[in-house]
Design a binder for these strands. Structure first.
Lengths: 182, 182
DNA sequence: CCATCCATGTAAGGAGTTACATGATTGG
DNA sequence: CCAATCATGTAACTCCTTACATGGATGG
């Protein structure tokens, strides 16, 4: 029941690129991957155990410094097959998204509402900042066309996130501009 | 714990426009509102009870036909105050979104991958259909500029959803076009 | 008459968040 | 030395989905 466990595939996908620790995975979910999927470490560690018990991954213990143990997870051939299947299988359900702010706008009944300018301006600032941030990241991570080809998938999603944000900013600007002048 | 109950505000927002039954609310979540928030009836009915016990809404029983009882929910002044607060309070947390398909692309390591064309084409079709659907709805629901002003919030979100979809379609097209020719 | 929709609920379970808990390492 | 980060886990709780369950109304 409930929705299908997609987190497992994403973890496997990440481990398919290189061995990682739970901590590394957690970081991935709030940097690269974070634009399109989120997960906390409290969700990741148990999932790793489950994947290991199912034979999709194994771990190797490495020592950092004097005695800090790290579990470096590796994907197994079975795990690799699972990732391939997941990617190859179609994705017919357009993942539904939520946006609290847009809904608030929905409940504003008229374009005369005095709260609109500040509401839109706040979001414009937030999204403009995020856009700037994404632009910078794209520039630093993929300075050359060659780099884009080497980490193709990473380039694609960063660039998609940027375009999405760009749209949001432009929409906010247009909506603000279209408000009746007081 | 876990995230703040936003569903309650959305329900109150809807009831603030007009009295509705649980069934009506459920429908709203898979039509108008559905682009930006989703909820099933199994989540809505219990929430209505909670809101009523807290004094934010009341219900009135109406009879359809011979004996079918409907509960028509009305918002109370306290409920209205709560909606106002929710809307007026800033929305600094950009609701994180998920997109399974984009993640699959992330795991495709190179733009030479033979699976890419079909993957992108499938999504292009899905999103093109959705875009067409949204365009039609915008045209039928808001044929005139006057209609846009009367249901301003509704117009805003429909038009935002459309633009968002437009971007997605264009991005897919560009990404497809940029693939190396075989 | 019968399929589709209207209408309302509950149960079970997985997904996801926040908080609790602990300890080592590194760099300034 | 001390703050920030690395590193791993569990507990509690809410959110959300799927399934179970029931019955009336409507239109062709």
């Amino acid at each position: 029941m409930a929705q299908k466990n997609k987190l497992q595939f994403i973890i496997l996908g990440l481990l398919n690129q290189q061995p990682l620790t739970g901590y590394d995975l957690t970081k991935a979910f709030d940097s690269e991957i974070g634009e399109f999927w989120q997960a906390q470490h409290s969700q990741i560690y148990p999932q790793l155990k489950r994947l290991e018990s199912q034979g999709y991954i194994t771990h190797e213990i490495t020592i950092s410094g004097e005695k800090l143990e790290k579990k470096l997870y590796h994907i197994t051939p079975t795990g690799q097959a699972l990732v391939r299947d997941w990617i190859t299988t179609g994705t017919p359900e357009l993942t539904a998204s939520k946006d609290e702010f847009i809904l608030k706008l929905y409940f504003v009944q008229t374009n005369q509402d005095p709260r609109l300018p500040e509401m839109l301006t706040e979001q414009l600032q937030l999204h403009t900042e995020k856009l700037a941030h994404l632009k910078m990241r794209l520039k630093t991570v993929f300075p050359t066309v060659t780099a884009q080809k080497v980490h193709y998938g990473h380039y694609l999603i960063l660039q998609h996130a940027l375009g999405r944000e760009q749209y949001y900013v432009e929409w906010l600007q247009q909506t603000l501009a279209a408000l009746p002048t007081v």
